[in-house]
Amino acid sequence: MTIVDLNKKYDGKKVVNSVSFEIPKGKVLSLIGPNGAGKSTVMGMISRLIAKDSGVIHFEDKDLAKWKSKELAKKLAILTQHNNIQMKLTVRELVAFGRFPYSGNRLTKEDNEMIDKAIAYMELQEYEDCFIDELSGGQRQRAYIAMVIAQDTEYVLLDEPTNNLDIYHASNMMRTVRRLCDELGKTVILVLHEINYAAFYSDYVCALVNGKIAKFGTVEEVINKETLAEIYKVDFEIIYVDGKPLSVFY
């Protein structure tokens, strides 16, 4: 997937200003940056949830805008931060929605197998028949990820998946992201607030400031004293844990 010269204005203010980058296949890419940098907007445009003002997104040698929405749903899954469902849905019913692009409302045997697998992968078997509004935040997030897995897409886009989760659930979530990439071979694109999760769990990092790309590169290229100080306007110390740079700030 290649993004070329993406632009978006809200009320005359440019929130995304000629952003171009390439998404490496089969890797985890994190979008980081201060508040209002345009991370979620870029993600929204990649996932077709937000209409872009100009620019082109090439997806598998075809303009993303020319893809049929239903076909795209088999290639690209997005999970946003706001998921409030008023319906009484069980975990299994929610995960089953992941099969909607393939079979509509009627599930085939193959669909049910995929749903079982997705539920097992997220270790949700014991909650399968619980209603999602009765689950804790961490479990609910896992149920949504299971739905994304059932959707069986090559690309997975997650908008602040660690938001509102405590450290335990957030780090579990990030390990799951890593597994999605390493075990299932998916390309994962994340929007993250927490720099160290981006540093520790992703392959590439794209830092945005004021709607522009400040730095795009491997973790080592982006997560260092100078670059981070420039992006966040705060002094950073970098320490290495397991050979990965982690930032310390206060």
Partner: peptide, 8 residues
């Protein structure tokens, strides 16, 4: 809306 679009 987001989920519906996601599902095509």
């Amino acid at each position: 809306k987001a989920q519906a679009i996601n599902l095509g």
